Amino acid sequence: MMQKLNRKIVNLFWKLYCYKVLKAICRKGDNIDIKLPITIVNPKNLTLHSDTYIGPEAWISAHANVEFDSGVIIGPRLKIYTANHNYLNDVAIPYDGVTILKKVTIGKNTWIGGDVIILPGINIGEGVVVGGGSVVTKNIPDHAIVGGNPAQIIKYRDVELYNKLKEEDKIYLKLKTNNKIDFSTKYD
């Protein structure tokens, strides 16, 4: 009985902490859906544009700026790093006391699968798909589909179809919010 009560108290404090963090995000667009729990270091450095979804258990280290353009969908357990130690020095090993900060940008209408890790300084282009479990160590060009550790380009989206859907404003989270999308299951 006491263990159950303790668990409820811990969950309540965790939810309060998460809501406090979410309120601290300075720049937010419309139609933002963030699932709890979430950890954001320096939420004032996080910019979320409209029609963005972040899955549960995301961990975003926004020591430097992190920007999600509109239409971004993030799977569960995303990790974003914006800081690193300086190992290229003549002061100490394995690194000195300098922290190197680099912005991370995620382009418009990008889908990032579950358990993805994004390293400092990465720019992910528009319409990109990042496969689950990938480690993004280099910039990704527009419309690329990537996967692996380190993430490699597998192929590219059909750009003509992508542009047609974008022109028609068929953005997943907008359609979902307005109940204009079919949620049936398809098996291959």
Score class of each variant (00 low, 15 high):
residue 17 Y to H: 13
residue 163 N to V: 09
residue 34 I to V: 15
residue 133 G to M: 07
residue 93 I to Q: 12
residue 72 V to E: 06
residue 82 T to V: 13
residue 45 N to R: 07
residue 156 Y to H: 11
residue 66 V to H: 00
residue 123 N to P: 01
residue 66 V to S: 01
residue 112 I to E: 00
residue 59 W to E: 04
residue 69 D to H: 07
residue 22 L to C: 08
residue 15 K to F: 07
residue 157 R to V: 12
residue 84 N to F: 08
residue 47 T to K: 09
residue 138 K to D: 05
residue 167 E to N: 15
residue 31 N to I: 07
residue 16 L to V: 13
residue 105 T to K: 12
residue 165 L to S: 08
residue 63 H to F: 12
residue 170 K to I: 05
residue 146 V to A: 08
residue 171 I to G: 02
residue 86 N to L: 13
residue 131 G to H: 02
residue 73 I to C: 10
residue 129 V to E: 02
residue 81 Y to A: 12
residue 152 Q to F: 03
residue 83 A to G: 07
residue 87 Y to A: 12
residue 162 Y to L: 11
residue 37 P to Q: 07
residue 14 W to E: 08
residue 186 K to L: 13
residue 137 T to R: 07
residue 56 P to T: 04
residue 148 G to N: 13
residue 66 V to K: 01
residue 188 D to E: 14
residue 99 T to D: 14
residue 100 I to E: 12
residue 37 P to A: 11
residue 151 A to Q: 06
residue 54 I to A: 01
residue 85 H to E: 02
residue 142 D to H: 13
residue 166 K to L: 15
residue 126 E to Y: 03
residue 41 V to I: 10
residue 47 T to M: 00
residue 165 L to R: 06
residue 81 Y to T: 03
residue 25 I to Q: 00
residue 10 V to I: 14
residue 165 L to I: 12
residue 33 D to S: 13
residue 137 T to S: 14
residue 188 D to L: 15
residue 72 V to N: 03
residue 184 S to H: 14
residue 112 I to S: 00
residue 95 Y to Q: 05
residue 76 P to T: 03
residue 184 S to G: 08
residue 20 K to G: 15
residue 45 N to M: 08
residue 11 N to Y: 09
residue 123 N to T: 14
residue 147 G to H: 09
residue 139 N to I: 12
residue 16 L to S: 08
residue 28 K to P: 01
residue 162 Y to R: 10
residue 108 K to W: 06
residue 170 K to Y: 09
residue 79 K to A: 07
residue 164 K to C: 06
residue 22 L to T: 05
residue 157 R to M: 09
residue 99 T to A: 07
residue 121 G to E: 11
residue 175 L to T: 00
residue 85 H to W: 09
residue 181 I to Y: 09
residue 92 A to L: 13
residue 163 N to Q: 13
residue 69 D to W: 04
residue 139 N to S: 11
residue 80 I to G: 04
residue 37 P to N: 04
residue 65 N to W: 01
residue 77 R to I: 09
residue 58 A to F: 11
residue 47 T to Q: 04
residue 77 R to L: 11
residue 172 Y to N: 10
residue 132 G to F: 09
residue 176 K to L: 15
residue 91 V to W: 04
residue 128 V to L: 08
residue 181 I to K: 12
residue 140 I to A: 01
residue 56 P to S: 10
residue 127 G to A: 10
residue 108 K to D: 03
residue 135 V to Y: 00
residue 5 L to G: 10
residue 86 N to S: 03
residue 12 L to P: 00
residue 60 I to N: 01
residue 178 N to R: 14
residue 166 K to D: 11
residue 30 D to M: 10
residue 164 K to P: 04
residue 109 N to F: 04
residue 95 Y to V: 09
residue 89 N to K: 11
residue 7 R to N: 08
residue 29 G to I: 04
residue 110 T to I: 05
residue 50 S to M: 10
residue 145 I to T: 09
residue 173 L to S: 06
residue 30 D to S: 14
residue 36 L to W: 00
residue 79 K to F: 14
residue 166 K to W: 06
residue 71 G to S: 07
residue 72 V to I: 11
residue 55 G to K: 05
residue 87 Y to I: 14
residue 18 C to A: 12
residue 95 Y to E: 00
residue 59 W to D: 08
residue 79 K to I: 15
residue 131 G to K: 06
residue 177 T to G: 07
residue 18 C to Q: 11
residue 35 K to G: 02
residue 34 I to K: 06
residue 162 Y to S: 05
residue 139 N to Q: 03
residue 178 N to P: 01
residue 66 V to C: 02
residue 84 N to D: 15
residue 64 A to S: 14
residue 123 N to K: 13
residue 4 K to T: 10
